[in-house]
Amino acid sequence: MYDFAYHKPKSMADALAALKKAADGKLLAGGMTLIPTLKQRLAQPSDVIDLAAIGELRGIKVDGNGVTVGAMTKHAEVAASADVAKAIPALAKLAANIGDGQVRNRGTIGGSLANSDPAADYPAAVLGLGATITTNERTIAADDFFKGLFETALKEGEIITSVTFPKPAKAAYMKFPNPASRYAMVGVFVAQTSSGPRVAVTGAGPCAFRVKAMEDALAKNWSADAVAGIKVPANGLNGDIHGSPEYRAHLVTVMAKRAVAAAG
């Protein structure tokens, strides 16, 4: 990697100050994407600001309405939380199946969402549960957050502080992993929420998206059969050596069916 100035602030204020001062600063959360990118010399930031020492960004709070996860909370902590498992078991299970053990013990929810990798798991849960993303400046509804390939609603100098997931009546996540990377080639999160069913897809498109036709069908009839006949258009979906857009479109239906069945 190229040289850069490394900062490890202890507070949000210091982090923001460091970011503001940097010519081309990058925030480091778990580093699951940034560190490999740096090692391959694909990025050359002037400053790297490590958020690991900011205590207020970590931790899980569960109340009757749902679950709030601090941005720097690691996947393994969400996976291991008995409170999360009780409130939103599908969320704990999703976290338990992100990457591998090393990734789960380094990677963070805030980092995953800010990066908006098209094949990340968390975006499906955030969108599927209608979560709210809190930053140092505001709150952003999940529906407004994911903008495109590695693109979010976050503005320059904005840092995610936590994510709040409302408790659904039921939910499940099913993923078909890329055989090589084990990222989601297609992951579908379905939830019966207070505002009706939500179906969110990751892996298939440039960023996580909802499938309204499936949501409408599930509103009428919550069953795997209800979504079995609904296909998303392949046009605009991702294609690579592991899966064409058509294959991914097909898998969205298969994974949606299985997720609805798993949610019960």
Binding site: P179, A180, S181, D240, I241, H242
Partner: peptide, 11 residues
């Protein structure tokens, strides 16, 4: 080489 890393080459 499109399968030039473990992200794309399945061991």
């Amino acid at each position: 080489l499109l399968s030039g890393s473990y992200m794309d080459y399945t061991m």
